[in-house]
Design a protein around this nucleic acid. Structure first.
Lengths: 173, 173
DNA sequence: GCAACCGATTGCAAAATGCAATCAGATTGG
DNA sequence: CCAATCTGATTGCATTTTGCAATCGGTTGC
């Protein structure tokens, strides 16, 4: 990933940050999957990233200011990765990207239900989600008691679809 | 660019379409730069794509349904590439991407003025731009006489910044 | 102790990329 | 009519990136 031949074009510079196969997948798993540890990211995503690539991308995303790393106080060996504000503001882009992919690509129902919900929720839901991420990752106060978290809502919808599929597919009930 | 190990996740599938260094650059040059020919894309972009990579990506984007190719009637040798509706609907994503890059990355003023204008124009401007692209690339009728084209507006703003910079930088006037 | 787990690192084969040279056909200028 | 130029690519080759499995030293739970 050479950083020469850069141009000052915003789209080009954005592509230099996450215009590769894995960086955005990692950010997706941190943002929507709530994963904070190396192993969670390594084993958690369906796509199966290799450990050396994961280590390289985490390092790179830190150098770019998208992530920070800290010791997990509960476990001297664990490192906990946090999103920066720079990464959190990707939420609207990920929402648009998910909506686009849902329309034009052969997405699976259970994995696109979250994108659908996020699209229907629109900017207000994205803002709420970003505030929750700021709370989790940056320690910002969470203003009001505003019902269940966005991630919990998305996760519940996912579980419902999976359960429904299992029900429908099962011959015994 | 292996297409196995895919998951049905919308974000993952989107990344399989343009999660590489060049595909979105090509689309950017076609959408915002109005380039339709191989040579225009080869020499036109600041980033300097290699001809074999360009040929490969054009082929790939065609297979994915983002582009179509046709003979240029004015020149039996020229091929003219057109955006499909699938590609045109990327405009909001590119607008968001440009806005994000403008905030967080060291963009140059002359190359980010377009992103700024597109951000300020918001969804109405994006819709107008997409209609113009549908007219250019898909032959759809252009409803009303609605002033100068979005691309012309963006281009004029770019020229103004460049001229201003030249003026400011020039010692003789 | 000791097996399981932690975040990586290493070695190696395979694939993708960058780069320059080149291709055949079409067009243009003189 | 012919040479120079331009068209959209393709080829060969060196470099870089990736995928994959094995492994590392240290930590934890039991």
């Amino acid at each position: 990933m050479s950083l020469d031949r850069r141009s000052g074009c915003p789209i080009n510079l954005s592509l230099e940050v996450f215009g590769d196969r894995w960086s955005l997948i990692i950010l997706r798993d941190m943002i929507f999957g709530g994963r904070r540890h190396f192993r969670e990211l390594l084993n958690g995503s369906i796509e199966g990233i290799a450990s050396n690539i994961l280590a390289d991308r985490l390092k790179r995303l830190m150098e770019l200011g998208m992530l920070t790393k800290a010791d997990d106080p509960s476990h001297k060996q664990k490192a906990i990765y946090s999103l920066t504000e720079m990464a959190i503001t990707l939420v609207p882009i990920l929402a648009h990207l998910g909506a686009w992919g849902r329309v034009w690509l052969p997405t699976s129902e259970e994995l696109s239900i979250r994108a659908e919900l996020l699209e229907k929720g629109g900017p207000p839901m994205w803002e709420k989600f970003m505030d929750e991420l700021r709370h989790e990752h940056l320690g910002m106060p969470l203003d009001t008691a505003s019902g269940p978290s966005v991630r919990a809502t998305l996760q519940a919808a996912y579980q419902a679809v999976v359960a429904g599929k299992a029900l429908g597919a099962s011959p015994v009930a």
